[in-house]
């Protein structure tokens, strides 16, 4: 049992382990980084250690995505209930139009309104992350076989029971796919947050690009890539279960 469980979680665990090793063992890799950019004055990003940057990055994404899930799924549920159905066309259209907004543009537009720093990024990520979640939750709930809904009513299930026991479980794969998109995009967009003053894994990349230091870029880029892969493989795992 535990063996097979380990096997199933192998991919996310492997990415996660690699991520942690690289994030904590900065000094050990100095020689390797030195090789990537022999001329650079220093090769380890000096402002903060990688683990701190990683945790900050994760924290921002986690808060933004967590709120986005609660608000997005909640909003989608509300507008598919009889009381909120008037808002359904508007919310559906706004969510699908909003998807076309490039994340950079959203982030850039958030700055004039919200200012520099971590909170503006969280708000921008939250707003942007909402869209795929709302869209997929709507698609999941609206795309259910009407026969199933009818049968659930016929068996005498109440509205709340239908939602919890029938609609949400059946729509779960689609909703999860939306959350996966949202989180993946947020990890990438949070890195861009470094350009608006956030201190996270994007920071070494930006610093590297500005100073022409390949070693800095490498640290940031590899860690962000690994973080994205860890989270993505985690979702892949979860969605195969559902």
């Amino acid at each position: 049992m535990s063996r097979s469980a380990f096997k199933r979680w192998r991919a996310p665990l492997a990415w996660c382990a690699l991520l942690l090793v690289l994030a904590t063992g900065g000094e050990w890799f100095e020689a390797l980084l030195r090789w990537s950019d022999p001329e650079a004055r220093r090769v380890l990003y000096p402002q903060a250690d990688l683990l701190t940057l990683l945790l900050r990055h994760l924290w921002v994404v986690a808060i933004a995505s967590g709120l986005a899930v609660v608000l997005g799924v909640g909003a989608a549920i509300l507008v598919t209930r009889p009381g909120g159905r008037d808002f359904l066309p508007l919310v559906a259209q706004a969510a699908s139009m909003g998807q076309t907004f490039p994340p950079v543009a959203v982030l850039a537009l958030a700055v004039p309104v919200l200012g520099f720093g971590t909170w503006p990024i969280i708000v921008a990520l939250l707003l942007y992350g909402l869209l795929p979640i709302v869209r997929n939750t709507l698609a999941g709930l609206e795309g259910l076989d009407p026969g199933v809904e009818e049968a659930a009513r016929g068996m005498g299930m109440g509205a709340a029971q239908r939602l919890w026991r029938v609609e949400l479980p059946l729509a779960a794969p689609v909703i999860l796919a939306g959350i996966r998109t949202s989180v993946t995009v947020n990890i990438a967009t949070a890195a861009l947050g470094a350009t608006v003053g956030a201190s996270n894994l994007g920071a070494p990349i930006i610093a590297g690009i500005i100073n022409g230091n390949t070693a800095y870029i490498l640290q940031g880029a590899v860690l962000i890539g690994l973080l994205a892969l860890t989270v993505d493989s985690l979702f892949a795992r979860l969605s195969r279960r559902g």
């Binding site: 870029i217 940031g220 880029a221 890539g225």
Partner: peptide, 20 residues
């Protein structure tokens, strides 16, 4: 699919060194 999960900023950064 693998390529798509790598954040854009990271990919841009990673391409700098090999192309240089």
């Amino acid at each position: 699919n693998f390529l798509q999960t790598i954040p854009s900023l990271a990919l841009f950064g990673l391409l700098l060194a090999p192309l240089a």
